[in-house]
């Protein structure tokens, strides 16, 4: 199965050799950062093109919650059904010098998450699109303890 991003332009895919994938944001002339990337924004009354940048891959978990029932499909496009659905978590991660980004989290049990804990970006399989490709989604995972 070919792997494709759930949507183009959200994160670098496929990652360049030797590089980790990163979320793609837009940066304005005054330093303001946008996610997802968009071509233009109005800054201080003037419309300008935004520069494409990679966002930091690590940040602190700012808040989180869980989802215990399968979201209505469509639009939900997860690779599960009403019976196989597993609760998931979602949160905002504070990316230093950038912004708070909303994302699925890899730890599905909210009891195991703590506000403030370090998180890092991962790209993982999500579902299957109408062409049979595996869709990839961005998420944040608890940073593994250094041994």
């Amino acid at each position: 199965m070919q792997q494709v991003p759930l949507a183009e332009g959200l994160f670098s895919w496929p990652p360049e050799p030797g590089k980790q994938p990163a979320l793609i944001g837009g940066k304005a002339s005054n330093g303001k950062i946008f996610f997802p990337y968009r071509r233009r924004a109005v800054i201080d009354g003037v419309r300008e093109d935004l520069e494409k940048i990679e966002l930091p891959r690590r940040g602190a978990l700012w808040t989180f919650t869980s989802q215990h029932f399968r979201p209505t499909a469509p639009p939900y496009a997860g690779d599960d059904d009403a019976r196989s659905f597993q609760p998931f978590t979602v949160g905002y991660v504070e990316l230093p010098g950038a912004l708070h980004v909303e994302a699925r989290l890899t730890e599905p049990d909210p009891a195991k998450l703590t506000i403030g804990q370090p998180m890092e970006l991962v790209i993982e399989p999500f579902g299957v699109d109408s062409d049979g490709n595996q869709t990839m989604i961005y998420a944040f995972a608890p940073v593994a303890e250094e041994q």
């Binding site: 949507a7 469509p74 639009p75 496009a77 979602v90 909303e102 699925r104 869709t135 989604i137």
Partner: peptide
């Protein structure tokens, strides 16, 4: 659309 597809 991806925002809804992702369950967000």
């Amino acid at each position: 659309l991806w925002y809804g597809q992702a369950g967000l």
